[in-house]
Design a protein around this nucleic acid. Structure first.
Lengths: 342, 342
DNA sequence: TTGAAAGCGCTAACAC
DNA sequence: GTGTTAGCGCTTTCAA
């Protein structure tokens, strides 16, 4: 079915070894024979067998990428960026998703190791339970963790400083003069850090922290944000809302408008993540972004650094790279005029 | 670094072959020795080397997936679905993106073939230039094309009937009483089929086809839809708009609202693709969906059918599977009352 | 400049 | 039941 070097050898009369060298452009082979060999290879439609190469080289030029899902636009974009980075270096990506299930994650890791990927980039399901990753590191398997929050275990990781993001959002609102800033905080990974940032910003601006202003939605969706807003305005009249996810913010935005509140006139809203829908909502949403590009770039860089180092992983200190998010200012916070947009 | 079967053999005193069989649970090996071997394997932390297995079995249990990009939500979702389907069958996915560039596509194909993937699923960059795929098929490489439009070449493919989708959209508008239905039609793959569907629906409802109602935007984005709407209303007062992509529809929607037109009261709007933003727009968008689940399921099914058939690909007729899209009715067309939603 | 031999880690066919 | 041998397609010494 496939042409092998052996076939070219037979046809040209050279040894397999010569074929192998010639095809790889070795200067140890005379140009003349190299030409002959290349030509015959072409004729026979020779396609190298990377599987065999991987076996002898003990390198697959493949990186495993494990995501919790890919519906999340941030992860989607991450996957895309990673693929590009890897392709540029001649590497290939095996993509697996865990659907937030730890058993799937374990299976994925095992499979990737069995396939002998050279390294792994992953968003862990449970950022607080990283034993497996730690032990993989001990057996010299490079795994870089990406993420939304801090990792305390001794692992290599690149993540976004969520506390800083929340701080920036709340500070921005405080600077605009808001005194009562609601925080719709989902319970997902990073929730406590976001809260930390929220509190820090309040303190910085001399505002009192009021627990009633913290509201926990019943989920991560649009509807949950809508309902959360309904709950808030039942008893309070805050002038600003910061939400830990854009969908929550968008849901709250919808509730406000539906109930005759002007955004940002009556209430300013800031979300988190900068998903696409944030840009196209009825009032374009100001939001804390997640710098996907930086994260993936740093992560792949770190990975390749580990791959090219010839010392044992065990002898290298785990590295943590922290990325700072930025505030994307649109209309929903009142800092920018409506006229600017379409 | 890695434990090999040889190491287990040495430690237990059995031959490599016995180890191999035992680890695969062969009944030819006595339970006793199997237990011993498994235990030692565990002790030594044995992890099979799939690369070696692939080499001898001439099967990699890997499927290559080539997408034009992954930012497009449809493709994202596709990638996710495919990964799931493949994982369920013990297959793994190598994902590559072409960024709509034919050279990248060719490179990706070559690489995947060199890696000896068992099959390929792909969204081609140029649906009308499929020579490479055709010749791959001749050399027994199963490639299933997914897509947005028809493929005329002799290839295996699963695609959505765009003409039917356009027909459904326009018919719906006609049924609601609209006489002047604008068609914002991007020039991408499938444009002519969509036009066919548009015309067919008009004819079915006894409406005249007016070329001035067909408008070609200057791109695929939100702004292009906005500008297209501006151009339309300069000279016409249509009551309905059908757009070949949701972004175009969303942009048109924004223009209408900004210019004091009520949607759907004054003008009804229908988009295509059912991207997420369609659900969360200021007026939730009625749109023709793209049944990703069905497409991927059929595509993987077809692929596995080809993989399990032991006759040469050349002797099997190329198969084309056509999927019919559905109309997702929301508020922007006026068929559903606003009260229903948040 | 080219070739011979060994080996990457595993499975398969056959023998015992 | 278990071992022996050969081989998957390639690279890598080492020799000529």
């Amino acid at each position: 079915m496939y042409t092998r070097q052996k076939d070219i050898a037979k046809k040209t009369g050279f040894s397999i070894n010569t074929i192998s060298l010639a095809l790889r452009g070795s200067s140890r082979i005379s140009e003349e024979t190299r030409n002959i060999i290349n030509q015959v290879a072409e004729e026979l439609n020779y396609i190298p067998n990377d599987v065999a190469v991987s076996l002898v080289k003990r390198k697959t030029k493949t990186i495993g990428v494990i995501l919790t899902e890919v519906a999340n636009p941030i992860l989607t974009y991450t996957a895309q960026q990673i693929e590009q980075c890897l392709a540029a270096k001649g590497y290939t990506m095996v993509l697996m998703t865990t659907r937030h299930n730890q058993a799937n994650e374990a299976k994925a890791l095992d499979l990737l190791i069995a396939r002998r990927v050279d390294g792994i980039l992953m968003y862990p399901v449970m950022p607080w339970n990283l034993d497996k990753i730690v032990s993989l590191r001990k057996t010299n398997h490079p795994v870089i963790l990406l993420g939304f929050g801090e990792y305390s275990s001794p692992v290599d990781a690149v993540y976004v400083d969520k506390a800083k993001g929340a701080f920036k959002a709340v500070e921005h609102l405080a600077r605009l003069g808001h005194k009562e800033i609601v925080f719709i905080n989902d319970g997902a990974a990073g929730a406590s850090e976001k809260l930390k940032g929220y509190k820090a910003a309040l303190e910085e601006w001399g505002l009192r922290y009021e627990p009633e202003l913290i509201i926990k939605p019943n989920g991560f969706g649009y509807e949950n944000g809508y309902n959360a807003a309904a709950r808030i305005f039942e008893k309070k009249r805050p002038t600003a809302i910061f939400a830990s996810m854009d969908y929550l913010a968008l849901g709250a935005l919808r509730w406000c408008i539906k109930n005759g509140l002007d955004v940002p006139g009556d209430v300013a809203i800031v979300g988190s993540d900068d998903i696409e829908a944030a840009r196209f909502s009825e009032v374009p949403l100001t939001t804390v972004n997640y710098p996907v590009g930086k994260v993936t770039l740093q992560a792949t860089d770190l990975l390749f650094k580990l791959l090219s180092s010839n010392s044992k992983l065990d002898s290298i200190e785990p590295q943590k790279i922290i990325i700072e998010p930025n505030l994307v200012i649109r209309e929903s916070c009142g800092a920018k005029m409506k006229k600017d947009s379409l």
